[in-house]
Amino acid sequence: MMPAALSEATPLLSVRDLTVRFRSGRETVTAIDRVSFDVPRGRVLGLVGESGSGKSVTALALMRLLSPDMAEIAGEVRFDGRDLVALPEGEMRRVRGRHLSMIFQEPMTSLNPIASIGNQICEPLRLHLGLGRKAARDRAAELLAMVAIPEPRRRLDQYPHELSGGMRQRVVIAMAIACEPRLIIADEPTTALDVTTQAQILDLLRDLQSRLGMAIVMITHDLGVVAEFADHVQVMYAGRGVERAAVRDVFGHPRHPYTGGLLRCIPDFDGDQDRLVGIDGTVPSLTNLPPGCAYAPRCERAQDDCRIVVPDLEAVAPAHRAACFHPLEFAREVSP
């Protein structure tokens, strides 16, 4: 671990040029291409994008959960001073679930159906903290209470099929926070839940985040979740980061036309809007990306240069980056 003085200054997680290529047969597909972002200690980064934009692959790559047989990871993932990409698997195992843990999208399938809730929560406690059977069980009950599950003692002996979707997601969260990690990667943690449960789970996550001082990478396609939850946003499109800034900047003055388009898609129920706005066209296939900016075919501001050269994610304002040759003007306000 790093000396305290240094660790205050550096971000907890610093991702530089993270690239993931999948091999399938002879072809390789670049699922994420030179993605960079920072997550300061105790802060929340929102990773936003459509399906296929590389959000989940980014999450799995950070945790090194992609099979090395299929995926090739390049770049640097500096977490608490160590580069996770270069870490031997044995050491990576001691990071996973201990300092860096993950909440999955599907609470129905992300729990082992034939292991009791208690055993599944005790696992990381016994593995990483070396707790005995009894101590781990006590701690597991405390964790269930922390995630607001009623009658935690009784729940320990129950099985996933005896709990509702929202309850299961609470169990998944309890498992993720068991060892009080410094960073949690939440991969669309509320997508599979109904709307009221979504709100409860988000409230719970925010509460835990402030109580435990964890940093969170919140992966979502829901801009509302980001607006409420995140400090910083990274917008992804076709495996590349296209805009990165503080939440108020991205929502107040989006600079990348894609971000602007996404924000316009949010229905405005107060105004007199009578049609839902969308972005014309579809996300290009990763196996067949256009030569220049991946968004150019759908972009109303695209010019010839956009179709030839891939724009880098460059500063367009202090602490605001966008990968666009012809960004939206700063003054332009898009009311979410």
Partner: peptide, 14 residues
Amino acid sequence: GEPFVVTGKAKGLS
């Protein structure tokens, strides 16, 4: 291929 296997790996299990 089940998701809970990934969950287990994410916990740090060998």
